[in-house]
Amino acid sequence: MLHGKALPCEGNFQFPAKGFFTVLLALLAGLAPLHADNPPKKIALSDFPAAAVQEVVVPVPSEIFAVLDKLGNPNWKAQLREGKVRTPEDRVRTALLLGNVIAEGFVAVEAEDAERVKELGRQVLTLAEAINVRKSVIARSKSITDKAEQRDWRGVRVEFDGALQDVRGAMDELNDHDLSQLVSLGGWLRGTEVLTNIVGRMALSCFTSPSSSTTSIAASGRCPAASAVTPL
């Protein structure tokens, strides 16, 4: 199964040996009509025994932040945490902090703060070193710096995604599976803190009436249309 396998294509997406197929696909697209089969409108998922349902691919942070891109322009700079983190003594906190800092990287990307992004890239390297996985993120850290200087924000996101996956992969190889999960958890915690703050502020600006606290907000974080407002 390929799930979870790191492939070197993301971001670069270069296929030096496969150009032929690209041309072929383009030609086929032009010459042959695209057919669609007729899938059933409804299926019973219970027909697929557990063994036939493959492992869930966990969303990467940039996939979540892609949703946030559509929220308009929240004040991301206000969400940035100030100061430099100190490397903790214990590995549990270091693992959590590493995930936390990677998530902070995404906030800095949203804020388009190149200096902060570079600083966070360096912090990722320092924290990775403290849990013996520095090697796995050296190249990522450099790419984060390079792409932040070029203000290639999409590229920086890919590198932070990659850093998270590389760190986890390296920790899994060291049989540090639990610590590896803590890295993801640390990222989730920081991401949730920031997102709930932004969504909360958006809700406040959407609804200024005294009854706003009883008004629901759509899970997407957008101000709901009048018809979608359902008091709980």
Binding site: L2, H3, L7, C9, E10, F13, V60, S62, Q165
Partner: peptide, 8 residues
Amino acid sequence: SVRKDAWG
């Protein structure tokens, strides 16, 4: 954006 993760 195309994910690195794949099924097969």
